[in-house]
């Protein structure tokens, strides 16, 4: 690999300045896991379909498996690990627990981050809006009704 194939990226990660040495071909989810030990986002389908690798870049959800890490240079990245504060869970996380909105939990970080984008845009979504927003996230345990209930519960607070 020649030198132009590597670079240093500087960005904000979960509110703190971050720096990483990356290959230009590496994806955001690879770098989050390898360089920052953030394992909430995980590559599952590898095609942007399932939502398990979701991260927020400048407030919008992206599939980390299809997003070049080089593109977050100068951006703000939020992963599920950066949602709560200290030992406090974020209200979305709390609601997912209270409503039993998962079984194995593999897809949960993605659902929670998509919910974050949804509520940022529509603080009081209808059931249709919730389903529309989350239709690109797959839960193989099929906890969908509980997920929708969890999102509704936060919106109704």
């Amino acid at each position: 690999m020649t030198k132009t194939h590597r670079r240093t990226i500087r960005f904000k990660l979960n509110g703190r300045p971050a720096i990483a040495e990356i290959g230009t071909h590496e994806t955001l989810v690879e770098v989050l896991r390898r360089d920052f030990s953030l394992f909430g986002a995980r590559e599952s389908c590898g095609q942007g379909l399932c939502g398990c690798c979701t991260a927020l870049v400048n407030g919008t959800a992206v599939s980390g498996c299809l997003y070049l890490a080089a593109f977050v240079d100068g951006a703000e990245v939020l992963t599920v690990e950066g949602l709560g504060s200290g030992n406090e869970l974020h209200p979305i996380q709390q609601s997912f627990i209270e409503n039993c909105a998962f079984q194995c939990g593999f897809c949960t970080p993605g659902f929670i981050l998509m919910t974050k984008e949804l509520l940022d845009r529509h603080p009081h979504p209808t059931t249709d809006e919730i389903r529309h927003y989350l239709s690109g996230n797959l839960c193989r345990c099929a906890a969908y009704p509980d997920i929708v209930r969890a999102v509704k519960a936060i919106a109704e607070r």
Partner: peptide, 8 residues
């Protein structure tokens, strides 16, 4: 596709 793809 889905919202994440449309965002990008």
């Amino acid at each position: 596709s889905n919202i994440r793809i449309r965002n990008v």
